[in-house]
């Protein structure tokens, strides 16, 4: 069943891709092939393979139950927040928070998670910024 849905979604992507390709504005100075042809070939391959997947599906994978699924969504949200907050609050704080969260969700105790998170953050900061001189996001406190 998963593969049938996947195939249909793939087909929709292919159709969308083909429309987006047709919408490309051609400039008056174009080569013989133009910017549309190759994307259209790709859309065709994408569509054909999607149809084939939908018609001959493999056995469904074991999807996680709702709880686990929420877990992954939550991790994605934390990572997005991390990406957005990084330039605002600085590397060390942002990384410590994100690493603490991930460690905690992977099964460490609360105190151990905080310590691991702090250790990860400070460790990466020390190795990559202080030793190797990589520029990391700066927060209001300068780190």
């Amino acid at each position: 069943m998963s593969d049938r849905i996947f195939g249909v979604v793939g087909l929709l992507i292919a159709i969308g891709f083909a429309f987006a390709a047709l919408a490309i504005e051609e400039s008056f100075l174009s080569d013989a092939v133009g910017p549309k042809a190759f994307p259209l070939i790709i859309a065709a391959v994408l569509g054909l393979s999607s149809i084939s997947i939908a018609l001959k599906p493999d056995a469904s994978p074991t999807w996680p139950d709702l709880g686990r699924f929420v877990e992954i969504v939550a991790a994605v949200v934390v990572m997005v927040l991390y990406a957005e907050l990084l330039p605002v609050i600085g590397f060390v704080f942002a990384t410590a928070l994100a690493a603490t969260y991930l460690t905690w969700r992977l099964g460490s105790g609360p105190i151990a998670s905080v310590l691991t998170g702090l250790g990860t953050s400070v460790g990466i900061y020390a190795v990559f910024h202080l030793v190797l001189g990589l520029s990391l996001a700066r927060g209001p406190l300068g780190f």
């Binding site: 990406a83 330039p87 690493a99 991930l102 460690t103 691991t116 990860t120 990589l134 520029s135």
Partner: peptide, 24 residues
């Protein structure tokens, strides 16, 4: 244990990509 290792992997990935472009 992966509970320590995997966050490090994630964070180092973020550091590397942020280092290239500096953009969120």
């Amino acid at each position: 244990p992966p509970r320590i290792l995997m966050p490090i992997v994630a964070m180092v990935s973020f550091v590397g990509i942020y280092g290239i472009s500096g953009s969120s």
